[in-house]
Amino acid sequence: MKIYIVNKSGHDLPNYETIASAGMDLRAVVTEPIVLGPLERAIVKTGLFIELPVGYEAQVRPRSGLAAKRGVTVLNSPGTIDADYRGEIGVILVNLSNEPFTVENGERIAQLVIAKHERAQWVEVSELSETTRGAGGFGSTGVK
């Protein structure tokens, strides 16, 4: 699929690193490094603006290596970019580690996954069909 993109980042366009990659890395665009202390968060700009077709969204997700090795993740994961949004893509990063983390210009900070979605139509009813699980909620199916 083709997606229109405006790139004001000064970096290459996001791309798939392997043939089977679902996401493309997003890079930070900062004029000076941003230091995130423990439990601090910031919106980090990417310099990218996209135009998605209706019926698609772009999901901003954490990079697993950054989360596992440095404790830095995307706070509202996954962040959703709707098809009618035309502003700059920003990433809400949070530092969940005990050490400061510095975001440098060009650093890969998140990944972007393009996903098709459906629009639901509610059908109001007086009751729902029965299932084995029923109303069992969090943890109701066990751990093993």
Rank of each mutant, 00 (worst) to 15 (best):
V74K: 04
Y56N: 08
Y85S: 08
D82Q: 06
K116C: 01
G79S: 09
S64M: 07
S97T: 03
E107N: 01
P78I: 08
G71W: 06
S77W: 00
P53Q: 03
E127W: 00
I92Y: 06
V123N: 13
K69P: 00
N76H: 13
P100L: 08
E99A: 09
L48S: 07
D84C: 05
E124D: 12
L93G: 09
E104M: 14
V54T: 11
A120S: 13
I50T: 04
L75F: 14
S77D: 13
E88H: 02
V74P: 03
V125Y: 08
E99S: 13
D84T: 05
N105M: 02
R108Q: 06
G106F: 06
D84N: 15
L128A: 13
K116T: 10
A58R: 11
L48T: 09
A110D: 10
P78V: 07
R63C: 09
V103G: 11
A67E: 06
S97G: 14
E127Y: 04
Q111W: 02
G79M: 09
A67N: 10
S97M: 07
E57Q: 14
N98G: 07
P62H: 02
N105H: 15
E107H: 07
A115V: 15
V91I: 13
N105Q: 06
S64A: 11
N98T: 13
A68E: 01
K116H: 09
P78A: 08
E51D: 13
A110L: 07
L128C: 01
D82P: 01
A58H: 09
T102L: 05
S64L: 06
D84V: 03
K116Y: 02
E99W: 00
A68W: 11
E57N: 10
S126N: 13
A120P: 00
R63K: 15
R119T: 14
G65R: 03
V72F: 12
T102C: 06
G47D: 02
P53M: 04
I92M: 15
R63A: 08
K116A: 14
L96S: 01
S97W: 01
T80I: 14
R63T: 09
H117F: 15
I114Y: 10
A120V: 14
L128P: 00
A83Q: 00
I92K: 09
E51Y: 09
G106H: 11
A120F: 12
H117S: 02
L112P: 05
A67L: 10
I92R: 10
E107T: 00
S97F: 02
